[in-house]
């Protein structure tokens, strides 16, 4: 098991029933509840990581969870570098994961085109 949402029926806090929201991440549909952050929706779906680092090309997701570390940044509806732990998910949000190649790698695609993990050099296709 990994990250997950606590089922409301078991929750002593008794959260109100919230309407669903659906977003896509790199084209994949993920649903959550209104009021959740993008990071919360992704974690509740079992995803732990979405960004790829520039130097080591290693995966990153939430680290600080309160908007300090910027590890969880994603592109939201065309805006880059949005902290997923701070932005609440809107129904229909189009999320792209981010990978910014280091400058000077001219033989590789520009980073604007490289925002989807399946386009990473060396990624299984």
């Amino acid at each position: 098991m990994a990250s997950r949402m606590f089922p409301s029926r078991d929750d002593r806090i008794q959260p109100a029933e919230a309407p669903p929201v659906a977003l896509t991440i790199d084209g994949q549909r993920v649903s959550g509840l209104r009021g959740q952050t993008i990071a919360g929706v992704l974690l509740a779906s079992g995803r732990l990581s979405w960004r790829t680092t520039s130097a080591g090309a290693t995966p990153r997701g939430v680290f600080c969870g309160i908007g300090v570390c910027f590890d969880c940044i994603v592109t939201v509806n065309g805006d880059r570098d949005v902290r997923a732990c701070q932005r609440r998910a809107d129904d229909g949000d189009v999320i792209l994961t981010q990978y910014d190649d280091l400058p000077g790698h001219d033989d590789q695609p520009q980073h604007d085109e490289l925002t989807r993990r399946d386009e990473l050099p060396g990624a299984a296709s």
Partner: peptide, 22 residues
């Protein structure tokens, strides 16, 4: 991934009822 600051676990638990792990 899977290493969090303690504050992240707290924020996700309190703010979203999401547990960062099992």
């Amino acid at each position: 991934p899977g290493v969090f600051s303690a504050g992240a676990a707290q924020a996700l638990a309190k703010g979203e009822r999401v547990a960062v792990g099992g």
